[in-house]
């Protein structure tokens, strides 16, 4: 509870994130480094999943998790802002969008590189996950473009919140339709990255990488939020100076 109220108050947020963000960076980087070392050097290759290429999983899968988690986070923050008008919730939604787009792009790019030796093509239209992530990427782009086009912060916040909520409402339908579309010509040799078939040796490095990426992402969101708070304060200060002059 203490955490939550700290996140609702800009002063306390600044104080909290002042040490929490660097901590997230440090711990996140350490976890990612450990996951990478395990993933690239230690764990054996899995011939069932195409040999060494499955080592890409330790960056691709965390990116996929973050792509989905960040959109949910952005939609949740938008919802909170829309109902309760906590300024920090809007600042959070605004901060998550570009970062979410980066990890979504990373997921697409690594998925595409993984696909080349596995499927023999850089882009597999029949893979439901790649298609869903692609549309997620477009949703992020649209959100950012809409916010940028609005002429005031308040309007950007409201328009962004409406669009993020409409998008979140549509994501399950988009996912369902894409699954349906790709099941028309399903390929039997689809890699099951996440599933009961995954051996325990891979699970730990994957979990650590995933958690590390989440912490790093959380730290970045906090830093961007701090930047936005400072920018808004500077704008208010400027308005005050102009009014006084």
């Amino acid at each position: 509870m203490g955490m939550l109220s700290a996140f609702a108050n800009p002063h306390r947020f600044l104080a909290l994130s002042n040490w929490l963000a660097p901590l997230f960076y440090g711990v996140g980087a350490a976890m990612i480094a450990w996951g990478l070392w395990q993933g690239l050097w230690v764990v054996p290759k899995d011939d069932y999943q195409g040999g060494d290429i499955m080592r890409v999983m330790f960056i691709h899968v965390p990116a996929a998790w973050l792509a989905m988690a960040s959109y949910s986070g952005m939609a949740a923050a938008s919802f909170i802002w829309f109902i309760w008008r906590h300024e920090l919730a809007d600042i959070a939604a605004k901060a998550i969008a570009p970062l979410g787009a980066v990890w979504t792009a990373l997921c697409l790019a690594t998925g595409s590189i993984w696909g080349k030796p596995t499927w023999g093509t850089w882009w597999q239209w029949d893979d439901a996950r790649m298609m869903s992530v692609l549309f997620l990427f477009f949703l992020f782009l649209g959100y950012m473009a809409l916010r940028a086009a609005m002429d005031s912060r308040q309007k950007a916040a409201r328009a962004g919140a409406i669009l993020a909520m409409v998008g979140a409402l549509n994501v399950p339908l988009i996912k369902f339709s894409v699954d349906m579309f790709t099941s028309l010509h399903q390929d039997a040799s689809v890699i099951t990255v996440d599933g009961p078939k995954m051996a325990a040796v891979y699970l730990w490095p994957l979990m650590m990488s995933g958690l590390g990426h989440m912490l790093l992402f959380g730290g970045l969101v906090m830093t961007l939020m701090r930047a936005e708070i400072w920018t808004r304060r500077a704008a208010r200060q400027r308005a005050r100076l102009l009014a006084g002059a």
């Binding site: 477009f138 782009l141 988009i174 894409v178």
Partner: peptide, 17 residues
């Protein structure tokens, strides 16, 4: 152009079905 960017992901289910 903004309308197109916003709406196209929302068109996906309709286009597929």
């Amino acid at each position: 152009l903004l309308i197109a960017l916003i709406a196209l992901p929302l068109y996906v289910p309709t286009a597929i079905f």
